[in-house]
Design a protein around this nucleic acid. Structure first.
Lengths: 77, 77
DNA sequence: CTTTCGTGTAATATATTCTTGACATTATGT
DNA sequence: ACATAATGTCAAGAATATATTACACGAAAG
């Protein structure tokens, strides 16, 4: 589909704040460590439900974890 | 993965408010009409990026369009 | 009665997310 | 030197999201 924007996330930061390892986060979420790595590395964006679960794990609003950046708002990386 | 909650969405309502057809919404988002139908019918949850784009189309926060309902908060449908 | 539009279903195909396991690297501890 | 923990890479495959096409049905319009 046509991508009009991109995503960033603060998962690594939130994880560091809690001093949780990737393994620990994966276990708490019931997902694989690979998935945590891939999301942190922005290799792909999670499903909506996983995004909500991640936000919930860190007791944050989903917008505090994931940011949608529409095309045109800071084209460079 | 372990699902700890479920999603609902107000896409149908928002669409009705704008008096847009499914076809119109699909075209505005650059996705297929099937995808719109499937999301409205809760057959699957969209990708996070699509969820953000839907919210943006209706000029809403993502939380106003999609609600995450953790397990235990209203088990019945 | 035929056309058009909005909605729905179903089948198949492709893309993306997610899992699993194997292995490498760096850091820390004994 | 050895063990262990945390992070990372790669590859194969399962699961889910999305596209595409075709078809059905009711409502409204001619």
């Amino acid at each position: 589909m046509i991508r009009k924007g991109r995503l960033t996330n603060r998962l690594m930061v939130l994880r560091a704040e809690k001093r949780w390892s990737q393994k620990e986060v994966a276990e708490r979420l019931g997902i694989s460590r690979q998935t945590v790595i891939s999301i942190e590395a922005n290799r792909y964006s999670p499903s909506l439900i996983l995004a909500f679960e991640i936000a919930r794990l860190f007791d944050k609003d989903i917008n505090e974890v994931f940011q949608y950046i529409p095309d045109g708002s800071g084209e460079d990386d």
